[in-house]
Nucleic acid binder design. Structure first.
Length: 106
DNA sequence: CACATGACTGGAT
DNA sequence: AATCCAGCCATGT
């Protein structure tokens, strides 16, 4: 039990992402006071696949689903997002034209 | 300890 | 816009 605080925090933050919204690895890193640790966030999410974490709501800053290859199928991540009302196609073409998560930094 | 890798990002070319 | 490079840091070999 009890992963390192860093991973645990990543999981908790990810679980705070509202249904139908997404955020970026960097945003989570900033939230954890580690803006340069975006890669570690992705690493943590990779290990969270079998946990209760909506990892599909985390995309890279370009709005690309860079983590889709870590899901059951390469289309699962996109399907999950589309199912929540997130226009993945729009994300790809209009970087910031999508609904970002409501993560706040306090 | 040295080196490589990775669900990233920002800046330079 | 596309590519490259450097910084970042946990893990594995």
């Amino acid at each position: 039990m009890m992963e390192n605080n860093f991973f645990e925090k990543v999981y908790q933050v990810a679980r705070q992402i509202p249904h139908g919204k997404v955020t970026t690895y960097g945003a989570i890193g900033q939230y954890l006071r580690s803006p340069k640790s975006a890669r570690m966030v992705g690493w943590a999410l990779n290990k969270s696949i079998q946990k209760n974490v909506p990892a599909h709501r985390v995309v890279n800053k370009q709005g690309l689903l860079t983590g889709k290859y870590h899901f059951d199928g390469v289309t699962l991540m996109e399907q999950l997002l589309e199912n929540e009302g997130v226009a993945v196609k729009t994300i790809k073409f209009k970087r910031w034209k999508f609904t970002f998560g409501t993560l706040t930094k306090n």
